[in-house]
Design a binder for these strands. Sequence first.
DNA 1: TTGTAAGCGTTATCAG
DNA 2: CTGATAACGCTTACAA
Lengths: 314, 314
Amino acid sequence: MTTLSDVAKKASVSKMTVSRVINHPQQVTPELRKIVEKAMEQLNYHPNSIASALAHNRTNVVKLVILEDIDTTEPYYMNLLFGIAKGLSKKHYAIQLATDRDVGGGDGYIITGGRATDAEWLDQLDKPFVLFGENRYGYDFIDTDNKLGEQLATQYALNKNYQSIVFIGIDEKEPFEYSREAGYINTLQKHNMIPKIFRIQNHSSLAEKLIISNWRKFAPNTCFICASDRIAVGVVRAIQRKNGNIPRDFGVIGFDGVLLDQVSNPKLTTVKQNLFKLGELLAGMILQKIKQDGAQQGEVLIEPELIQSESTRN
Amino acid sequence: MTTLSDVAKKASVSKMTVSRVINHPQQVTPELRKIVEKAMEQLNYHPNSIASALAHNRTNVVKLVILEDIDTTEPYYMNLLFGIAKGLSKKHYAIQLATDRDVGGGDGYIITGGRATDAEWLDQLDKPFVLFGENRYGYDFIDTDNKLGEQLATQYALNKNYQSIVFIGIDEKEPFEYSREAGYINTLQKHNMIPKIFRIQNHSSLAEKLIISNWRKFAPNTCFICASDRIAVGVVRAIQRKNGNIPRDFGVIGFDGVLLDQVSNPKLTTVKQNLFKLGELLAGMILQKIKQDGAQQGEVLIEPELIQSESTRN
DNA sequence: TTGTAAGCGTTATCAG
DNA sequence: CTGATAACGCTTACAA
């Protein structure tokens, strides 16, 4: 393994000059810099991030804290995780997972599944953190643009000439859900239509029951805007059990676009979150926040994409 | 942050004694050990794994290398990952993900999705590694007991008095598939029945097509043993499209037991892999192998569990 | 059994 | 702008 000293020797400079070329290039004269860079290349030098971490009193580890129950974990976490891991690897950071609030050890946290009730806990954390998922307490976060997503979905349903547009939401008093509903409501109001919202927990079987027990309220030519693919899957099943025709008489649009939309039959038209990118951005944000000693990073919303498939008219 | 020196001072011993209490307790007299342990507790001392890593020329990072395409990644990876992460965290190890063969930086590798063609690449790795998934080249691995799993499934189908038992396998020439088929074949032969095996790629839509295009071959009273839940989902759909009655006339048994079995309608009877435990064991194995400087670890098979649900008679 | 000294590879600090 | 030195927290090797 070649070290800073090796490079220094080869370039006939001190270790510090080499270190500076790596971390503060502008503090070194261009000529010296060139020489050092050549030496690094010839020796195929790669900085030892562990040594650097020690000198900085860092761990080079970011903790991913998942506050939701792991059993109900959506498959989309996998994509998120890959994005995060990718983003961290670039900077020689590694990931540790925590599934409870018992954190510690790590330079910062990426926290997902946080609910309003977690605010108190968040406030007493002593390391920088960023959230995956909207919040309205001023914590730094990244999320899909939930509102835009349902705007796209609702507008799409209108374009396909469904007369009645119903929203099946997730029964949680959380910003992501409010945003999704807002996107739906906004778009309907723009067309002078009155919103109809039902809410249930995020399970396909509950969605199925809901639709069946309210079936007479849904005339043909209705499109269901669902706050998740899970719900959409249940809605599809209910319509099929009632012998409704998808997509001719009934449209269904999901949200997430990870696996379930593909497994469903018919495949779901859905609002697809770009979770990989989201993960990468989360990684970038927490690393920057660590580097900047906890400075505020603000909020970032990622545009989702409407994937057109078999559960709506084309 | 309290360090080794702090503890040493408090206990009036040298740093080395403290270090020994942590790493080689038997080299320290019980009395001293007690004193040191008390000091550690009082000061709430936690070893700095980065410093230790530096002294050992280690990174305290294990790479998880996923050789399968991420898009087709089964949701079960999430569970595996959690198990791994949990196992690693206990020993203050962190995870880095790699989705290609471009590894390096890390004390060892956990490799999943490896195929026979990867042998050459594996042989030239210079760090210890263990595989998730059976192989017959002598590489250390951990996997579900695939053979046992399909034995359980097949025997279960027989117990439920399905007359004809058909296997729908994954069309890959890999040990995990051979083992699953062997479990099915074994069990049938024990009852003097002749195996009927179909093979397709692991997609629900292909399974659906397969069953439909061979429909006349499947008399009522048939149970399908499927090599994955994905396939099982497709089989269920095909049977439903042909108006077959599940579970009375047709049984379906899946394999994996992660998400898809629950989302399916009817819910699937399936062979459930304990992926969390598998992940933990993988972590334990690679850590031990690292500690033992690459010593052979052998192979471990984890017992799966047959989950009885709605896609078979009860 | 216990302690001393040196070193792991990097960076901050201060002097030149 | 560049270099010498000490320090980060721990462990190995050797000495007592």
